[in-house]
Design a protein around this nucleic acid. Structure first.
Length: 476
RNA sequence: CGAGGUGUAGCGCAGUUUGGUAGCGCGCUUGGUUCGGGACCAAGAGGUCGUGGGUUCAAGUCCCGUCACCUCGACCA
């Protein structure tokens, strides 16, 4: 047994101090460090590897739906931002502006992109002439900068990495179909790769993207019952087409404005992952995106044959496509167990003289802590199977929590009680901004998504006839 | 920007009330013994106490200024 708990719990208690648990976990497990400029984060190799796995999975899905990758510039003329009225109003307060270049004051200031609708719009205007040029389906992997007032690693940083898809279509229907299709891609990705169940739906006007006709979002429930917006897909209508003059000559010989969409997910997904699956010991990473899927811990490493056996096993697992590593440091086994558990590695394989003699390995699951033994022969298949089980178990656990913690409310008091109990709250809403603001004021909860296919009688706030069923929650 | 809080070794902290040689734990270095849930022994290295000024024989400690960071609000992927 451990001598005491003093060193086991290097991280804050997850139940009583979740925000602190989160920052402890992201910094102490080597995912990130704080950058020298306030609000920026350095994503360290262990954290970046998660992002690479996310990229790989998403990119394959984008390609499969006909999208191509490209790269657009970081710097955007300030005037671009002002062409779409809502857009500039929404983003102006948080843009970083470059005013000097080469030691001289610039004639026109440049903004460091907070998002790229404007520059995509400017280029699409040049590229699109005919209906034959449509649709244009482009995605870019990039960094963006938004000068946020308060920041937290992954969840909100001044600079973050993301993917932004920008598409142009001949018709409203097609653009809307694209918007919904990509929201669906995000949802499937979140559930199958991140093992993270999500709520999807339309956002209210208040929560809408600046410049969009309609925004659809995907929100996930975090461990403490708060919501995190994990992805968005916007139907932009002709707003940006008109602002940037994206016109095409249609089959009927008439010049028409294109209909555009944009959609994105960011490194915030990593934060979402952590806040969805963590426990008192630290991170739990779903196998699909875990940088290390199986960590091999040699026991009595100096004894003859142990290191040879662990290396043989590692090579065998890696050859089968499993991300396996061996911890060959001279820390004690107990130290390694705790360290790798904190880092969220889904499966630990202990290999010591006893195992080797018996031709076995000892397996310990991160999600259930269940310890089993299995023969060394056929190790890759055994490990693959276990990893798949862990992946689906994580999803099942998160889904169960998600379903248990949605309650209904008939009035603001119930809504308040619901969110204070760490729940998402379903309630009727009349659709007016005043009620939405009043609810935020009184409960600190905001409208996450409009729930489709359900009806309510009265508004939870004013009691008038309800137009929508809304999922309310406190949000990060 | 409004309200609170914190700055002392890489990390976490004590010391500040009542001024008097700069401390503790972890980590780090070297050597040895260990290894199935955060091992042990021994010897080391490491600090302009955020910063500027003031009071004093003497300031981590008292006074004034200033900066940074954290938490909670307003804003947001």
């Amino acid at each position: 047994m451990a001598k005491d708990n003093q060193f086991v719990n290097q991280i804050a208690d997850i139940e009583t101090d979740f925000p602190r648990w989160y920052t402890d976990v992201v910094t102490k497990t080597g995912l990130v460090d704080y950058g020298p400029v306030k609000g920026t984060m350095v994503i360290r190799p262990y954290g970046y590897a998660i992002w690479e796995n996310i990229q790989k999975e998403l990119d394959a899905r984008f390609k499969a739906t006909g999208h191509k990758n490209a790269y657009f510039p970081l710097l955007i003329p300030y005037s671009f931002m002002t062409r779409e009225a809502e857009h500039v109003e929404g983003f102006a307060p948080e843009v970083a502006v470059v005013t000097v270049g080469g030691g001289e004051e610039l004639a026109e200031p440049l903004v460091i992109r907070p998002t790229s609708e404007t520059i995509f719009g400017a280029m699409y205007s040049k590229w699109i002439q005919s209906y034959r040029d449509l649709p244009v389906l482009i995605n870019q992997w990039a960094n963006v900068m938004r000068w946020e007032k308060t920041t937290r690693p992954f969840l909100r940083t001044s600079e973050f990495l993301w993917q932004e898809g920008h598409t142009a279509h001949a018709t409203e229907e097609e653009a809307m179909e694209e918007t919904m299709k990509m929201l669906g891609v995000y949802k499937v990705f979140a559930e199958t790769c991140l093992a993270m169940p999500v709520f999807t739906g339309r956002k209210t006007e208040k929560e809408k993207f600046a410049g969009a006709v309609a925004t659809f979002g995907m929100d996930a429930m975090m461990h403490d019952g708060k919501s995190l917006q994990a992805g968005t897909s916007h139907y932009l209508g002709q707003n940006f087409a008109k602002a940037f003059d994206i016109q095409f000559l249609d089959k009927d010989g008439v010049h028409k404005y294109a209909y555009t969409s944009s959609w994105g997910v960011s490194t915030r997904l990593i934060g979402a992952l952590i806040m969805t699956h963590g426990d008192a010991r630290g991170l739990i990473l779903p196998p699909v995106v875990a940088p290390v899927q199986a960590i091999i811990v040699p026991i009595a490493a100096k004894k003859e044959g142990v290191l040879e056996a662990t290396e043989a096993l590692r090579a065998q697992l890696c050859a089968a496509g499993i991300r396996a590593e061996t911890d060959t440091t001279d820390n004690s086994p107990g130290w390694k167990f705790n360290e790798w558990e904190m880092k969220g590695v889904p499966l630990r394989i202990e290999l010591g003289p006893r195992d080797i003699e018996a031709g076995k390995m000892t397996l310990v699951r991160r999600d259930t802590h269940e310890k089993t033994e299995a023969p060394l022969t056929g190790a890759p298949e055994t490990v693959q199977k276990l990893l798949a089980e862990i992946q689906s178990n994580l999803f099942a656990l998160a889904k169960k929590r998600k379903e248990e913690r949605v309650v209904s409310a008939a009035n603001v008091q119930e809504l308040l009680a619901g969110v204070e109990g760490g729940n998402f709250v379903k309630a009727g809403w009349c659709g007016c901004r005043e009620c939405e603001d009043a609810i935020k004021e009184q409960t600190a909860a905001s409208a996450r998504v409009l729930v489709g296919g359900e009806e309510a009688d009265t508004c939870v706030c004013c009691g008038k006839k309800a137009k929508h069923v809304v999922l309310f929650a406190r949000a990060y």
